[in-house]
Amino acid sequence: MFRFILRRLGITVISVLCLTFVVFILTNLDGNLVKLAKFLGSQRMSAEQVDTWLDLNGFNQPDVIRYGEWLGVLPSYQLVQDDGKILGRCTRPGVSLEDTPRYCGIFQGNWGWSVIFREEVDSIIFKRLALTGWLMLYVMLIMVPIALVIGILAGMREGTRTDRTLSTFSIMTTATPEYVSGVLLVALFSSNAVGLKWFKGSAASAMENITFENFTLPVATMALYGMGYIARMTRASMAEVMTSQYIRTARLKGVSFTAIVLKHALRNALIAPFTVIMLQFPWLLTGVVIVETLFNYKGFGWTLVQAASNNDINLLLGCSIIAVIVVLITQLISDIGYVFLNPRIRVS
């Protein structure tokens, strides 16, 4: 078991390195660097001036070396100009050469400088992540219990009218992506045309103060799309368990239906949905991006869109490393958890 976890951890680390390297290459393409140079230097720089600027600031080194610098395993590029100005990725205005660290990458806690927000990337990301954390928390609190209840009720008696109704509901929610349900919910509950105006169509005020009025629509939008999928998985798993031998034995020895469902079926039926719920996280990430854009909630997803559309290299790299790590860790937990929960699987 220990070796299994260790091996999975190793693969996860390799995957993180590979993916961040790919993102690093893709965000540091020549075209992007030219744009960066013009943004930080001057808009009217000629091609040669841009090249000199990139040379002076160390952007023209090979990608592998710059990736190493970004990670913090290679000493960073530094150049002291004649007038005493220090150039390089570790330098900050007003810090002397002696105080400038040699290594400054992710490992040293230096995520770089965001050019659009004019702030350190890590402080932006963790601030935004906290906001998204609240959103995710509420989504999970709403989505998971409802989905499990729907799935269990539907799978408990397969083929009945309850099952048909609940299954159709689940299919409908999986067919409604966030940008569709979001638009429909806003049109229904907060537009002038319908006039219900129960909730707010923007969650911008929820960043300071979460209220029922401003947070219901974003949470409902996200929860709806994920709910159907979990419910269907739970239903399939529950239906399978209900046909197994030990359930029949329990029925034959006279255990009541409620007791069978609660004591015998439920535990076994929840193993598969656990994996699905964990694997739902990466999916929620796309949802987070859509919902935060739609409802103007300035969390992690919103930041990612800003970084990507404005080509803020350091911020985009920071966002992607977080996203990739979240995805890989949930995969890891789901794999390990599945082995722990399911006594039929033995890992040697």
Binding site: T27, K35, S309, A323
Partner: peptide
């Protein structure tokens, strides 16, 4: 493991098309 949304943003950026 790569976030789909990020993939799209990277793929359609003009620098990548170049």
């Amino acid at each position: 493991a790569f976030p789909v949304i990020l993939l799209f943003y990277l793929m359609v950026s003009p620098a990548i098309q170049e």
